[in-house]
Each structure stands twice: as structure tokens, then as C-alpha cells.
Design a protein around this nucleic acid. Structure first.
Length: 270
DNA sequence: AAATTCTCCTGAAGGC
DNA sequence: TGCCTTCAGGAGAATT
């Protein structure tokens, strides 16, 4: 399931293959993604040149001369770089053909998206209200503290709220809260500045470590070359219900918070 | 306004 | 073996 480190891994992997290249053709086999791919998109963007490959939250941004292609991997999406003939599978929904190589998008659950905008991309409706990037200086303990005052919802829900901070998905929220000794259901407004400083640092650390390891492969994340990420072996609580806490050996617990599985140590996290 | 629930989708896993 | 049912999850939309 692509979270920020997986999307960043993807971005870094595809960039050298497509930067400066001209799009020969967009081939759409399945337009029914999160939002339908516009029927006339292929003819609109044919011939566009990739000027930059950026990322905002979990959106990949292919910045081209007349606009920007937004790609979201949803929870089962992946992009592979193909350099030879390769028969598309049933979930290979579109190809971006750059001549020398092509990007093939696969997404069994179809929660992902392919959108084109000619307006300044940061003003796009999907991006304009997003919180800061977690690895930026704008995101820190003070920021979290200020934005959680008066909020009674679980701290885990708040750090996963894209309007507060982007890119912190379920896996990394669980891990960061464990490293910070904070119980995931603790009301966000009842946590001290000091503890938020520690949480913000751990969020940055966990995300950066995961990026350095090429992301987390639990089931279906593979990078542009078809290789898995190696952060899964670093996970301390996620998906480890019943296993011993790496610090105190208490059994890791599992609880649903806001429709999502949460994993934590009831002894270490208060 | 903030908090909660719903929604899209398919594959894996579990029950009988 | 096979046909259910349940669940997982990103995040915008809808509802409370």
C-alpha cells in the first residue's frame, strides 16, 4: 500500500527514465479509476515533454510544458518502467509511452487516479487544502501542538488527516506513535508540546528511514523495476498483533480507530 | 466546524 | 474443492 515513502521511491525510480522525454502516446485500457480518465486526455497530452517529476503528498506530479499530470497510486497502484515488449495484464490500466521506454500503471483495486490540469498545479482542488509535507521544516512539534488544540479526536486520526499533515498513512502513523510512547487513541488536544516534538521527530525519522530502504512491501508494493521495499522488516508494531513488543515484550494489541486497524503496545504507549 | 460514516474496488483469507 | 462472507485501505464525499 503506497504511502509517502513508496510514492517517493516511485518518483525517484521513474525520474531518470522520463525526464526530458516527449510523450508519444497515452494508452488507456480502463478509464474507470477513482475518477474517470477523460476520454480526450490522450489527444490532449500527446507530445508533451516531461520537465520535472515532483511529489505533493501522495500525488505524483509529472510537470509538462502545457500542464501537469497528477497520478495517485491509491492503495494498490504501481508504476513500472518497461523497455521491451510486455503484454499488459488485466489490471494494467494505462501506459505512458515515451518511445524509448513506457510507464505502465497497474492498480487492481482502482483507487488510484490519472488527472490532467493546465492551471498552476498547487492550486488544484485536490492539492490546495493539503497540510504541509512531513519532511519540511514547516512541520514540527509546535505545528502539531497548535493544530491539535481543542481537538478531541484520537491523535492517530489527527496525524493521518491530510489537512493537518500529508503522507502519514496507517503504517507510519502506528510506527511513529509507538516510537513516541503515545497511545493512538489519546485525544489529540490532551498531549503536551514536548510529546508532540518527539512525535514530529519520529514521523520524520520513520518516513526518511522508509524512503532510504525503498519503501515498505507488505503484499503488493513493488518499485519501478519490480523490486520490493525493505522497510517491512523494520516495523515494530504494524501488522504484529500478538507478537512481543520489541521494548517490553508485552503482546502488541490491535484496535480499530476510525475504520482502520491500529497496532500498539498497551504498556509502552500511554 | 468538527467528527464520523460512506464510498469506490479486488484479492486474500477464513468459515462451512 | 468451492462457494460464500468478511476485511483491508487512501481519501474525497456525504452525513451527523
Amino acid at each position: 500500500m503506497p504511502e509517502l515513502p513508496e510514492v517517493e521511491t516511485c518518483r525517484r525510480g521513474i525520474t531518470p527514465h522520463i525526464l526530458g522525454r516527449r510523450l508519444q502516446q497515452l494508452i488507456v485500457r480502463q478509464p474507470q479509476l477513482r475518477w474517470p480518465v477523460a476520454v480526450d486526455l490522450p489527444q490532449h497530452i500527446q507530445g508533451q515533454v516531461v520537465l520535472a517529476v515532483e511529489r505533493r503528498a501522495k500525488y505524483l506530479l509529472l510537470c509538462m510544458n502545457e500542464g501537469t499530470l497528477l497520478i495517485h497510486l491509491g492503495m494498490s497502484g504501481s508504476l513500472r518502467v518497461l523497455t521491451g515488449a510486455d503484454t499488459p495484464g488485466p489490471h494494467d490500466h494505462f501506459d505512458l509511452d515515451f518511445g524509448a521506454c513506457r510507464l505502465r500503471y497497474r492498480d487492481p483495486r482502482r483507487f488510484g487516479a490519472l488527472l490532467w490540469t493546465t492551471a498552476p498545479v498547487q492550486e488544484h482542488p485536490l492539492l490546495v487544502h493539503l497540510g504541509p509535507e512531513p519532511l519540511s521544516q514547516k512541520f514540527n512539534g509546535e505545528y502539531l501542538y497548535e493544530h491539535s488544540r481543542g481537538r478531541r479526536s484520537a491523535v492517530k486520526t489527527v496525524v493521518m488527516d491530510g489537512k493537518v499533515v500529508v503522507g502519514v498513512g496507517n503504517i507510519y502513523a502506528n510506527e511513529s506513535l509507538f516510537l513516541s510512547g503515545i497511545h493512538p487513541v489519546r485525544p489529540a488536544g490532551r498531549i503536551s508540546l514536548q510529546r508532540y516534538q518527539r512525535l514530529a521527530e519520529n514521523i520524520k525519522q520513520v518516513l526518511q528511514n522508509a524512503i532510504d530502504m525503498g519503501g515498505t512491501t507488505l503484499r503488493d508494493f513493488y518499485n519501478q523495476s519490480g523490486n520490493p521495499g525493505y522497510f517491512a522488516q523494520q516495523l515494530r508494531v504494524y501488522n504484529r498483533e500478538g507478537a512481543p513488543c520489541p521494548v517490553c515484550s508485552s503482546a502488541i494489541r490491535r484496535q480499530r480507530i476510525g475504520q482502520r486497524s491500529s497496532f500498539f503496545c498497551g504498556n509502552c504507549q500511554r
